[in-house]
């Protein structure tokens, strides 16, 4: 069953006298147990969609179902952790207080929440500043404590808006690893980003949006297969084969051959008896797909 179902969302903002269309018939689904990336250029309607999911903004028409419950109902958020972009937390709270507050809002047992808070602070390397006020936190620390506050409720679904924007490269790397762990424990993760590499690394599926609507949806299978456009075959220098597009000679008596995906079988057949050193798939990068789709639309 789909964890998130977005159905025909429309939303127009009034900016002074002009009307700005933020969402234009946005529809998609996110399946259970995935890490799904929500990719699009700035102003594509990513944040608006996420805010409608959290009922912070009301759509003009259409609806969102979270675990089958309409997002305008409070109980749709029962086991949902949400972290907005540059998360704004009441900055007079300390890190620990924020976690406990979050837990209380979800009616989590007191003893359990204390223990869990300590674990999370440990995991996100915030134990040292747990009792400092949030206004003294750096951007990256806010991002991490915010993430911890979504995990303390033991969510079924995480909705994250630009979760890695404040993190340094090491922070990103660690964060991605934690996301994978969380996913492995059965939580569905839906996060928006405009940074392709972040999504490419960890997502099972990707939704690409532009101008308030979905222009391309890549499923788990698509991500794995459709993206492979050819193979790199490493063979000794003296091998010669026809119909090969491109051959690159390397120094130590080796050469690399590029073959198209559909020609792989034939090429391997042709290379019978040749000492193939390795075959690597050449992925068409998400970036290329993204740029192509954005430009086509």
């Amino acid at each position: 069953m789909a964890v998130i179902q977005v159905m025909n969302l429309n939303k127009t903002y009034k900016q002074k006298l002009k009307k700005v269309t933020a969402l234009n018939n946005m529809s998609f689904k996110v399946e259970k147990g995935q890490i799904c990336g929500f990719l699009g250029p700035n102003g594509a309607g990513k944040s608006t969609t996420l805010k409608i999911m959290m009922d912070l903004i009301r759509a003009d028409s259409g609806k969102v179902l979270i675990n089958g419950i309409e997002s305008t109902r409070t109980d749709s958020r029962k086991k949902v952790g949400f972290m907005p972009e540059n998360p704004p937390y009441i900055d007079s709270l300390t890190g620990r207080e924020l976690l406990l507050f979050s837990a209380k809002m979800h009616n989590i047992d007191y003893q359990k929440e204390k223990k869990r808070a300590d674990e999370l602070l440990e995991m996100l390397e915030l134990s040292g500043s747990a009792d400092k006020k949030l206004r003294n936190y750096s951007k990256g620390m806010i991002q991490r404590i915010g993430f911890a506050s979504t995990l303390i409720i033991e969510p079924d679904l995480l909705i994250l808006d630009e979760p890695m924007s404040g993190l340094d490269p090491i922070g990103r790397y660690k964060f991605k690893n934690i996301l994978k762990e969380v996913k492995n424990s059965g939580t569905t993760i839906f996060f928006s980003s405009h940074i392709i590499a972040d999504i490419e690394d960890i997502c099972n599926s990707v939704i690409i949006v532009k101008d308030g609507r979905v222009i391309k949806q890549l499923t788990q299978k698509d991500m794995k297969s459709m993206a492979i456009e050819g193979y790199r075959i490493l063979v000794p220098k003296d091998v010669k084969i026809k119909e090969i597009e491109k051959v690159e000679r390397l120094e130590d008596g080796l050469q690399v051959m590029y073959v198209k995906r559909e020609l792989l079988n034939k090429t391997i057949h042709d290379l019978k008896g040749v000492d193939i050193i390795s075959i690597e798939p050449v992925k068409k990068s998400l970036e290329a797909i993204f740029v192509k789709e954005i430009e086509q639309n």
Binding site: D55, T74, F82
Partner: peptide
């Protein structure tokens, strides 16, 4: 104003 509502109302809170 300071968008604290994003993190307050995203809990199951009416």
């Amino acid at each position: 104003e300071r968008k604290f509502v994003y993190t307050l109302l995203s809990h199951p809170l009416k």
